[in-house]
């Protein structure tokens, strides 16, 4: 039986996180949530790896850019594709991601991006060592 893709949402805005979670759960995805980059790294260290990370950029404690740097430095995490959900302007600091979605994002754009990048067949070592 096929496992439904697992998404990790890293977003500090509780209202936005809640509605994204409702949308993705309704579409049959599995979802976990961290409210900043630091909490996300802690979660990733102890849980099954997601198929896709949805990443906000401006967050307290550890922002999206620093999270991405830390992720790329960790061989176990580096290959997880990242879709950025950014409210920053066009001239903001660039980030290495498979896609940058600029807020406000529509339901269609969000679901299309999640569907496209969560089905990639990257080999994964799902258990923390």
């Amino acid at each position: 039986m096929l496992r439904s893709p697992k998404i990790l949402l890293i977003e500090d805005d509780a209202d936005l996180a809640e509605v994204v979670a409702e949308v993705l759960l309704m579409e049959g995805y599995q979802l976990s949530h961290a409210s900043d980059g630091k909490a996300a790294l802690e979660l990733l260290a102890t849980s099954e790896l997601p198929d896709l990370i949805l990443l906000d950029l401006m967050m307290p404690n550890m922002n999206g850019w620093d999270f991405r740097d830390a992720q790329l430095r960790d061989a176990r995490l580096a290959k997880i594709p990242v879709v950025v959900l950014s409210a920053t302007g066009e001239r903001s600091r660039p980030i290495d991601a498979v896609l940058v979605l600029r807020k406000p994002v529509t339901l269609k754009e969000l679901l299309s991006a999640v569907k496209r990048f969560s089905n990639s067949s990257q080999p994964k070592n799902n258990r923390p060592s």
Binding site: D15, L16, V19, M26, A87, T88, K103
Partner: peptide, 24 residues
């Protein structure tokens, strides 16, 4: 302008996603 735009984009995203959900 950059901060105001950022701050308004987040609730606007949430609002748009709720409206999308309502349509469904």
């Amino acid at each position: 302008l950059s901060i105001a735009s950022h701050e308004l984009r987040t609730p606007l995203s949430t609002l748009i996603l709720h409206l999308g959900l309502l349509e469904r």
